[in-house]
Amino acid sequence: MVVPELSTIIIALIALAVIYFFFKTFKSLIVNAIVGLVILFGANMLFGLGIAYTWLVILISAIGGALGALLIIVLHVFGIAF
């Protein structure tokens, strides 16, 4: 029977596609987090903001990248958060 081999190949291709998209998304999150943290580090050094690097700050930076870092800075300057 050819069906078990064909179904195994289809399942392997689907698993490969899921793994590819997971790592592609994970890579972009890491790049965004690094860019956001570099911006936050620069803002802390230049302006002495004192923003702590917590998991929430890293998560916002990972999802939002540079815009997330700017959002954190604005919220900190206005005294709303961080």
Rank of each mutant, 00 (worst) to 15 (best):
M45V: 14
M45W: 14
M45Y: 15
M45P: 00
M45K: 15
L46E: 12
L46A: 14
L46R: 07
L46C: 01
F47E: 13
G48Y: 12
G48I: 13
L49Q: 04
L49I: 13
G50T: 04
G50A: 07
G50L: 08
I51A: 06
I51M: 07
I51E: 06
I51V: 11
A52Q: 14
A52N: 13
A52D: 15
A52C: 00
A52E: 15
A52H: 09
Y53W: 07
T54E: 13
T54K: 02
T54G: 11
W55A: 04
W55P: 00
W55M: 07
L56F: 09
L56S: 09
I58L: 15
I58P: 00
I58S: 07
L59H: 00
L59C: 03
I60R: 11
I60L: 14
I60K: 12
I60H: 05
S61Y: 05
S61V: 01
S61I: 00
S61R: 03
S61F: 02
A62L: 06
A62N: 06
A62K: 08
I63V: 15
I63H: 04
I63S: 03
I63Q: 04
G64V: 02
G64Y: 03
G64C: 01
G64R: 02
G64D: 03
G64W: 01
G65F: 01
G65R: 03
A66L: 12
A66D: 03
A66S: 12
A66M: 10
L67H: 07
L67Y: 09
L67I: 13
L67G: 13
L67Q: 10
G68W: 05
G68N: 05
G68S: 04
A69P: 08
L70K: 01
L70G: 06
L71H: 01
I72T: 11
I73Y: 02
I73C: 09
I73K: 05
I73G: 09
V74T: 11
V74P: 00
L75E: 10
L75Q: 11
L75M: 14
H76V: 04
V77G: 01
V77A: 07
V77D: 00
F78I: 15
F78L: 13
F78E: 06
G79L: 07
G79S: 08
G79Q: 06
